[in-house]
Simulated scan of single mutants.
Amino acid sequence: MLQSFPMPAEVEGCSCYFARNQKEYENEQYVYVDDYGNNAYIKLDGHMIKIPMEEGDFDPSNFSKVLEDSEYRISMSGKKTSEQDETMMFTGQLTVLIKKENRTITTPVYGECGC
């Protein structure tokens, strides 16, 4: 099960963070967080998972992102809903493939990327 979590202490500065909906977002309970180029974080079945990423893995113009390591594949898609200064709001869908179980978890997401 994909679980929500507060902002990881390692993430500072520019980042993307998404919750299942606007209420969880406002309560800072996220299902996905990344730091714009080094690591992405999700929480599955009670375990925090950190997946390495590279800068440029995210295209804000059409809001698509795919991250993968030996155990997981995370993909996100959606659309930009607004933009202010250096922050962009998005709505979309997050899908996590757990490779060893051949199990997929999908959830709607609401959140932002910015500095």
Results as ranks from 00 to 15, higher is better:
M1G: 08
M1S: 08
Q3T: 04
S4Q: 12
S4I: 06
S4D: 14
F5T: 09
P6S: 12
M7Y: 00
M7N: 05
M7K: 13
P8K: 01
P8D: 02
A9I: 08
E10Q: 10
V11Q: 01
E12A: 12
E12H: 07
G13M: 01
S15Q: 14
C16W: 03
Y17K: 09
F18E: 00
F18A: 02
A19H: 06
R20H: 02
K23Q: 13
K23H: 05
Y25T: 03
E26I: 01
E26R: 12
N27V: 02
N27K: 12
E28C: 06
Y30D: 02
Y30Q: 09
Y32W: 13
Y32A: 03
Y32S: 03
V33G: 00
D34Q: 04
D35M: 03
D35F: 05
D35I: 08
N38K: 11
N39T: 10
N39Q: 10
A40S: 14
A40G: 14
Y41D: 03
Y41A: 03
I42S: 01
I42G: 00
K43N: 08
L44Q: 02
D45T: 06
D45S: 06
H47S: 12
M48C: 03
M48P: 13
M48N: 13
I49M: 03
I49K: 06
I49H: 06
I49V: 15
K50E: 15
I51Q: 03
I51C: 07
P52Q: 10
M53F: 02
M53G: 08
E54H: 12
G56K: 09
D57L: 03
F58V: 06
D59I: 11
P60R: 09
S61V: 14
N62R: 12
N62F: 14
F63S: 07
S64F: 10
K65W: 14
K65H: 13
E68N: 09
S70I: 05
E71S: 15
Y72G: 05
S75I: 04
M76E: 10
M76C: 13
S77A: 11
S77D: 13
S77M: 10
G78D: 12
T81Q: 08
S82F: 06
Q84P: 00
D85A: 14
M89S: 14
M89F: 11
F90A: 02
F90P: 10
T91Y: 06
T91H: 10
Q93R: 15
T95C: 08
V96K: 04
V96H: 02
I98H: 15
I98N: 14
K99V: 05
K100D: 13
K100Q: 14
K100C: 05
E101S: 10
N102K: 12
T104D: 01
T104N: 09
I105L: 15
I105N: 02
I105W: 07
T106H: 03
T106V: 10
T106D: 00
P108G: 11
C113M: 06
C113I: 11
G114T: 05
C115A: 14
C115D: 15
